[in-house]
Design a binder for these strands. Structure first.
Length: 342
RNA sequence: GCACAGGUGGCCGAGCGGUUAAUGGCAGCAGACUGUAAAUCUGCCGCUCCUUGGAGCUACGGAGGUUCGAAUCCUCCCCUGUGCA
């Protein structure tokens, strides 16, 4: 899932995202609440209509901002008090508030309000945080079920709109287990593993995913939040992860880092100044089939906004291709198995 | 010709007797980025060596001078800008 925090995948218009084959976008509760405001979006017919995107949308609950806005927030049992990064004003996010906003945005998948625990953290601190996330999950679900119909588009969306729970528990497998089991107990149509990619070694990320995944129902979507590099997402998918989101392809693109079949490529490097090759000769995307490294480098070092646009398109294409090949492999594997079984 | 104001490292621009290889910014080179406070951030950036940390050399228009010590003070010269002839 490409990340479009502010109802926009920075630099890439929706029709191009469709052309790239993007099926679902991620938006953010906290940001859209601050601007333009969830009421405005609701009044404009919901986030899909507002941003002219007919395909699926998932909204994050604001839980990650509990982590990322570390300096600007205060966590209590009731919720989190944020100081807006835009103007410094104070805002209280509770599970109920997060649900209210997300219902008003009207995404297809909305996320329970959680606390993304920082790393490193003392075991007790992680446990406390995990317990709070569980209580918030309960409250999120209760509010969602009681109020999900209070939007103009409730009927058409009712059958499909769903609330996902989020597993926390830091880097402690036992806490992850407990979090997973109790989240499943609450019952959601899909489950996320949160609290990863917060600065821990990549090896740890994989271990936690590996140990947590089997604890989540196989017949429900399993979503790892905030990962990863191309090789990582393929690996996680192979482990059984169904969904992932990450700002990496888009942010890195804006910073001049391209992901290619040969690995990372810092397109701003001087060595590409006279390189007529496409960024990735093995990539069939609309950027690689048309532009050279030399041109992309020129755009980047010149500060042309087209650089961000083209780099982002390529990186998204690369990520989407990666996932497409994962799907093909899965299908091939299934037919292989069916053949064996059949 | 006269009067002011200036000439600083690739560029712009601080410094105006010592702690100054010389603040900043730009340009340049490289790195980071993982549920987006990110078109951001970090490092390097006179030359040559040993390569932790150092050593040597060359530098603030030019040439002299004052001083223990000068980009900083003095003299002359060159150049640039503005104004007046």
């Amino acid at each position: 899932m490409p990340v479009g925090t502010l109802a926009s995948v920075k630099g890439v218009p929706q029709h191009l995202l469709e052309e790239l084959g993007v099926q679902i976008l991620l938006g953010n509760t906290y940001h859209l609440y601050l601007r333009p405001g969830h009421q405005a979006i609701r009044d404009l017919g919901g986030l899909h209509r507002f941003m002219a995107w007919k395909r699926a949308i998932l909204t994050d609950s604001g839980g990650f901002q509990v982590f990322s806005l570390n300096e600007l927030r205060k966590v209590s049992e009731n919720g989190v008090e944020f100081r807006s990064h835009l103007d410094g004003s104070s805002h209280l996010f509770t599970p109920e508030r997060s649900m209210e906003i997300q219902i008003a945005l009207g995404a297809d998948i909305i996320m329970a309000f959680d606390e993304c625990t920082e790393y490193p953290a003392e075991r007790e601190r992680v446990r406390e945080s995990m317990e709070r996330t569980l209580r918030w999950a309960r409250r999120s679900k209760d509010y969602f079920e009681a109020h999900r119909h209070e939007v103009p588009w409730a009927e058409e969306r009712q059958a499909t709109q769903s609330l996902f729970g989020i597993v926390q528990g830091g880097m402690h497998p036992e806490l992850r287990r407990e979090s997973a089991e109790r989240t499943v107990e609450i019952g959601f149509p899909g489950y996320a593993i949160g609290g990863l990619s917060v600065g821990e070694p990549r090896e740890l990320t994989r271990e936690i995913i590996a140990s947590t995944l089997p604890l989540l129902p196989k017949d429900k979507p399993r979503y790892v939040m905030g990962v990863g590099y191309p090789d990582e997402i393929a690996e996680y998918a192979a482990m059984g992860v169904d969904m992932m989101d990450c700002v990496l392809p888009t942010r890195a693109a804006r910073h001049g880092l391209l992901f290619t079949s040969a690995g990372r490529m810092n397109i701003k490097n001087a060595r590409y100044a006279r390189d007529p090759e496409p960024p990735d000769p093995n990539c069939g995307c609309m950027v690689c089939s048309r532009y050279s490294r030399a041109y992309l480098r020129h755009l980047f070092v010149s500060g042309e906004s087209l650089a961000a646009v083209l780099n982002t398109i390529h990186n998204l294409a690369h990520y989407l291709d990666t996932m497409r090949s994962v799907r093909h492999a899965i299908r091939a594997g299934e037919s292989q198995r069916n053949r064996v079984i059949g």
